[in-house]
Amino acid sequence: MDEEYDVIVLGTGLTECILSGIMSVNGKKVLHMDRNPYYGGESSSITPLEELYKRFQLLEGPPESMGRGRDWNVDLIPKFLMANGQLVKMLLYTEVTRYLDFKVVEGSFVYKGGKIYKVPSTETEALASNLMGMFEKRRFRKFLVFVANFDENDPKTFEGVDPQTTSMRDVYRKFDLGQDVIDFTGHALALYRTDDYLDQPCLETVNRIKLYSESLARYGKSPYLYPLYGLGELPQGFARLSAIYGGTYMLNKPVDDIIMENGKVVGVKSEGEVARCKQLICDPSYIPDRVRKAGQVIRIICILSHPIKNTNDANSCQIIIPQNQVNRKSDIYVCMISYAHNVAAQGKYIAIASTTVETTDPEKEVEPALELLEPIDQKFVAISDLYEPIDDGCESQVFCSCSYDATTHFETTCNDIKDIYKRMAGTAFDFENMKRKQNDVFGEAEQ
């Protein structure tokens, strides 16, 4: 370990593993360490099931009705991949897709007046949907046509809207959309967690709705994908990429100290040895004095023996409960997957309800979601602090990732990755940087 590296990475969460992969592909010498004996950090999948019970201090362990412990891979952080989103792009560019198998999530649902409705995925579904009345549908269709044709580089498509100054509230007004449709559009399509976006320039919202539609167009059922064997497969896929390009991995490796000289990182000390480096990437748990708390998320993992009611017996789905429907500031989400994804025993389902904490009784906040899941065989409640770095790391060369937020997709995580890359490399992130180099010394032969 007593060696000189360009970059040392602490923690094998998804953000850290993707950055480690990119740095290795770009010719950097990388050492990647984790104090845990497993990959994934906060974003790991726990197996066998006995391990999950232990982690949540349920000492009696799983009953026999849960089947074989080894058949379970339970995500600690519930997220899906947008089919046309940035993480899929990263997987394709790096060819990490060859280590993973994905399934399309069967449906996306939205909560309205105590019931759940399928988010329409085709024009026919939209016309048949009970989510809105006849005239509302016509106006909504006009709005969707506007979004589909919108091109930020072609003012002819703006229809009198200025993407940089017109607020989204004004765009909704222009198409005369009612409150329910606005809730549905902002939260189930643009996937905002709160209503803060309404008074911001509309460009980002329009682009988010386009991303949803384009992702949906790829597979038809929903815009989301999920990897077989759980999300823990993602960091491992990128760790393989890093290793192929010469990255060194050490799990179960305690970090005793991060060594600084004149305010700059110069190395990491572990078990009496020092590895030197020019730059350091880590998750917040490794540098508690360089991060601040930015809120909390509650996630309740529920094991069920039945599909969720009114989802047409889907073996995977997402449910969004827009905040307006339950008098909150932030949406509540449910991600459900099952034995069909090799993450649970035969006939079992895993539904994870999550939201940003707003009160001193977080469990009560998630109740509307839990009511949709009854009866629940077993619950595991996790309340996590969200951390963000206190500075950009440019001076110390210590670059810290943000905690995983309450969103049900990876777009915010990818933004964090691109942002850290830019601060480390001094140049904007470009997907081309992730391409495997042809015929290089570490390149794998085609399968």
Rank of each mutant, 00 (worst) to 15 (best):
Y5I: 12
D6N: 04
G11L: 04
T12A: 07
T15G: 03
T15I: 12
C17S: 04
L19F: 14
N26S: 09
N26Q: 08
V30S: 01
H32E: 14
M33T: 05
S45G: 07
S45F: 01
T47A: 07
Y53H: 08
R55A: 11
F56T: 08
Q57T: 02
L59S: 06
P62A: 12
E64G: 12
M66S: 00
G67D: 12
N73D: 07
M82T: 06
G85A: 10
K89D: 04
K89R: 11
T97C: 13
D101Y: 07
F102L: 08
V105F: 02
S108K: 07
F109L: 04
G113W: 11
K118L: 01
V119F: 12
A126V: 07
N130C: 04
F135E: 04
K142T: 08
L144P: 03
V147G: 03
A148L: 09
D154K: 14
F158C: 13
D162S: 14
Q164G: 14
S167L: 14
S167R: 08
S167Q: 06
M168V: 07
Y172D: 01
K174V: 14
K174G: 13
G178D: 10
G178K: 03
V181F: 03
D183Y: 05
D196Y: 06
D196E: 00
Y197R: 15
Q200Y: 13
V206C: 08
N207S: 11
I209R: 01
K210E: 05
S213T: 00
L216T: 11
L216W: 10
L216C: 00
Y229F: 10
G230D: 01
P235N: 15
A239V: 10
A239T: 06
L241V: 11
L241P: 14
I244V: 08
I244F: 01
N252S: 10
I258L: 10
K264F: 05
V266G: 09
V268G: 01
S270K: 02
E271W: 01
E271R: 10
A275Q: 14
R276G: 13
Q279H: 05
D283H: 08
R290P: 06
R290L: 09
R292S: 04
R292K: 15
K293R: 11
G295E: 12
I298N: 08
R299Q: 13
I300L: 03
I300N: 06
S305N: 11
H306Y: 04
N310T: 06
N310D: 10
N312Y: 13
S316F: 00
S330G: 05
V334I: 11
I337F: 09
S338A: 10
N342S: 10
G347R: 04
G347E: 14
K348R: 11
Y349M: 04
A351L: 05
T355A: 10
V357Q: 15
V366K: 01
A369R: 03
L370V: 07
E371D: 06
F380L: 11
D385H: 03
Y387S: 00
P389F: 13
I390Y: 14
G393I: 15
E395K: 04
F399D: 01
D405V: 09
A406S: 02
A406I: 14
T408Q: 02
H409E: 06
E411G: 10
T412N: 12
C414W: 03
D419Q: 05
D419H: 12
I420V: 10
Y421F: 02
K422Q: 13
E432D: 04
K435A: 14
K437N: 07
A445P: 13
